[in-house]
Write a protein that binds this DNA or RNA. Structure first.
Lengths: 104, 104
DNA sequence: GAATCACATAAGTATGTGCTTATGTGTTGG
DNA sequence: CCAACACATAAGCACATACTTATGTGATTC
């Protein structure tokens, strides 16, 4: 159940914020830490969890490690969500907008 | 951050299984418990968490309480997911299938 | 090659979470 | 009414998790 790891990873608000920040553009761990009240080890641990959940992937660049959003995690969530499409009401505007975007 | 409650609710495998079972059709707490190795209080607590996360909603029917999937929780996940559509690769088959379904 | 930097890992601790048993609440049927 | 039922809540406990400080690892710079 990889989805469980994904949900578990996103269950923590700090980790959710890290992911959200990373979604604005790939950056290294130090850059991610800027403006966030979080220690270096804590950030490293959070990134490790996000990476295990396939929400984030890393790429060594010299002594920096560049992190970026891993689409695979998002795809897995989308897959999970798709299983329950029978329950999506017509009024889900977010989804409708989403669909339009994909059609283009 | 209501999404955090949703992710936290789905982070537990037991709760995930309960939701999945409920997605096959609405039923009461006792029926949900059938075949699952889980005590009555544990089930009640899990349902309470799922309800707080808007993943499930209840309806009293005599001395039974009927539970069903609450589309609002799914919509919130879809909304969260939509924020990161920039990262969806074209190869996400699940999403593509999902889109086709919605178009019909 | 030694110091420094960017990051990872180890170990300990405080808090959170999911379970248990016990009990409470509301409903139904005899 | 009262016994049985369906479910909720309370309290306590075992374990998980998110943090801390301390230290390790690999790369760069002087």
């Amino acid at each position: 159940m990889i989805e469980n790891d994904i949900f578990k990873a996103l269950a923590d608000p700090t980790r959710c914020a890290i992911f959200e920040k990373l979604a604005t553009g790939s950056m290294n761990a130090s850059a991610l830490r800027d403006g966030m009240k979080i220690s270096q080890p804590a950030m490293s641990q959070h990134l490790s969890v996000l990476r295990s959940a396939r929400l984030v992937r890393e790429e060594r660049q010299g002594r920096f490690v560049n992190y970026e959003v891993d689409p695979e995690g998002l795809a897995l969530i989308a897959g999970w969500l798709a299983k329950y499409r029978a329950y999506w009401p017509a009024r889900i505007d977010a989804l409708k907008a989403l669909l339009k975007d994909m059609d283009q």
